[in-house]
Simulated assay, not measured.
Amino acid sequence: MSDDLGLFTDEPTDVRRRRSDPEAFRRRKRRRWVTALAAVFVVVLVGGGVLYGASQIVQLGAYEDFSGEGTGQVVIRVESGETVSAIGSTLADQGVVASTKAFIEAAEGDRRINGIQPGFYLMRKEMSGEAAVEHIMSPDAKVGRVEVRGGMRLEDQLAPDGGTTPGVLTRLAEATCVGTAECVSSERMHEVAATADLRSLGVPEWAVGPASEAEPRRRLEGLILPAVYDVKPGASAEDVLRDVVTRSATMLQAAGLPQAAEGTGHTPYELLTIASIVQSEGIGKDFGKIARVIENRLAPPAMRLGMDSTINYPLDKPALLTKPEDRDRPGPYNTYLNYGLPPTPISAPGQDAIIAAEKPTEGSWKFFVKCYPDGTSCFADTYEQHQVYIEEARARGAF
Rank of each mutant, 00 (worst) to 15 (best):
G70P: 11
E79T: 11
R18D: 12
T361K: 13
D140A: 15
S347T: 03
E392P: 07
E238Q: 13
Q259T: 11
P373D: 02
T267L: 03
Y336G: 09
G68R: 06
K101I: 11
G119L: 04
V44M: 14
V43T: 04
T83L: 08
T165N: 12
I116A: 09
D308S: 07
D10S: 13
M123Q: 06
T176Y: 09
F120N: 14
M137N: 09
R297V: 12
D197N: 10
A175D: 00
A254G: 14
S99G: 00
L252C: 01
V34A: 10
G81Y: 06
F367G: 05
R19A: 12
Q59H: 07
A214L: 10
L37D: 11
K366R: 13
F103A: 01
R32P: 15
P332I: 03
G284C: 11
R77D: 01
D65S: 02
A181L: 07
D21Y: 03
L315V: 04
R292S: 05
V184Q: 04
L154C: 02
L201S: 05
G222P: 00
C371A: 15
Y372D: 10
A173E: 10
L341V: 04
Q351K: 13
R171N: 12
N312E: 15
E155L: 14
L320D: 01
G179I: 06
K370G: 12
S20G: 13
D65W: 03
F8Q: 14
P160D: 05
E11P: 11
Y339G: 01
V40A: 11
A24L: 14
P12T: 10
T335Y: 10
G350M: 00
P210M: 06
V44Q: 10
T100Y: 03
D316M: 15
R218H: 15
Y383F: 13
V293P: 05
G234E: 02
A207R: 05
V168I: 15
T83M: 11
A393P: 06
F367L: 01
G282R: 08
S377W: 12
G306E: 11
D156P: 01
A193P: 07
R149E: 14
G179E: 02
V244D: 00
G49A: 06
S377Y: 07
S185N: 05
D316H: 15
A254Y: 08
E64A: 06
A380M: 05
L158P: 09
F379V: 02
D65P: 03
A106N: 07
I283F: 08
L51T: 00
E147N: 14
A357F: 04
G6H: 05
V75A: 03
P360F: 01
L5C: 12
V203A: 08
D110P: 11
P301K: 13
Y383E: 08
V133K: 10
G70M: 04
V228H: 07
R329N: 13
L337M: 13
K285Y: 07
D308R: 09
A299K: 12
R329P: 10
L154F: 00
K359P: 08
V44H: 08
T90F: 03
E205P: 09
A237L: 10
V133R: 08
K366S: 09
D156R: 00
D286R: 09
Y389L: 06
Y52V: 09
G265M: 01
L158H: 14
P349C: 09
A62T: 14
A102K: 11
V46H: 08
R17H: 13
